[in-house]
């Protein structure tokens, strides 16, 4: 509790006014999915499991499948490429830390719509070399998740003295592989978990790059289905937002457990 905080009445006024602004579109979307002619029913939710509708929703399931593959490959990029590089920079190149930080935060300043202009010719080449499988998009997504994943992992690195840990392990005869995999990684697990989950959320929500490179992912499929069945698109929208919310709650709780441990 903070002494600078406003009074209870002011807090409630802010909460209700701003809360309403956020609640109204979400509740309206929910009501919208219940619409059935002039009445209300669960028909649009039941349709998700209706075999007769499977064909109509096929793009969504295909897009979701592609997005999940992309999420998995992106998480691998974060864990195998970004995390070890961050540990390396922290341990061996401490003077490069701030330069490294500005580099990985750079994608915040480069709009995805700009990146896609340059990615188009690159993906033409990739398409020739590796085929047009959806998973190749993960290379681009790895860049868009960089700032998010970096912050999550860096918070863990700052909270754990990995230099002492690695020196202790090295002096006991451990090789670098053992140090990274069996000493440092377990200590960074909350940061690595948060980075992975946030990468999943970013990939599932990504539209710009996939859409303009003509790839079928979850978000582009939503747009396709929206044109034929707006109700289904709304149902999936609510489900996806709820899923992302759950992921972020888990990240929040994981971070909380970490800060709690530090204080004790």
């Amino acid at each position: 509790m903070n002494r600078l905080a406003p009074s209870r009445a002011v807090r409630w006024i802010i909460a209700i006014v701003v809360g309403a602004f956020f609640a109204i579109p979400m509740l309206s979307t929910l009501l919208y999915t219940f619409r059935d002619g002039d009445g209300f029913s669960l028909v649009h939710w039941a349709a998700l499991l209706d075999p007769a509708k499977t064909a109509a929703y096929a793009p969504i399931w295909a897009g979701l499948g592609n997005s999940l593959v992309l999420a998995a490959v992106t998480v691998v990029l974060v864990l195998v490429l970004l995390a070890p590089t961050m540990i390396l920079v922290h341990l061996r190149f401490p003077r490069m830390r701030s330069a490294f930080e500005s580099l990985v935060l750079l994608p915040i300043s480069i709009p995805a719509i700009v990146l896609v202009v340059g990615l188009a010719p690159i993906y033409q080449q990739i398409g020739r070399a590796l085929g047009t499988g959806a998973w190749t998009l993960a290379f681009a997504y790895g860049i868009t998740v960089l700032p998010f994943a970096y912050r999550a992992i860096q918070a863990s690195i700052d909270a754990v003295d990995i230099r002492t840990l690695s020196e202790a392990a090295r002096s006991l005869g451990a090789g670098w592989g053992t140090v990274v995999l069996r000493v440092i990684a377990p200590n960074l697990r909350s940061g690595l978990l948060a980075a992975s989950l946030i990468s999943v959320a970013v990939v599932l929500g990504e539209f710009t790059i996939a859409s303009l490179l003509n790839r079928q992912v979850f978000q582009t499929a939503l747009v396709v289905v929206k044109n034929s069945d707006a109700y289904a698109a709304s149902v999936f929208t609510l489900l996806a937002l709820a899923f992302a919310f759950a992921l972020l709650i888990v990240i929040g709780l994981a971070g909380r457990a970490r800060t709690g441990k530090d204080r004790s």
Partner: peptide
């Protein structure tokens, strides 16, 4: 570290970073 703060942080993250297309749909439904 309370429930309200955790929920607000998570909701803020969802709407600020992952909304995109879905926010447009929510507003069309509204």
């Amino acid at each position: 570290t309370g429930t309200v703060r955790t929920a607000v942080d998570a909701a803020a993250g969802v709407f600020a970073q992952f909304g995109g297309v879905m926010l447009a749909f929510a507003f069309i439904a509204t």
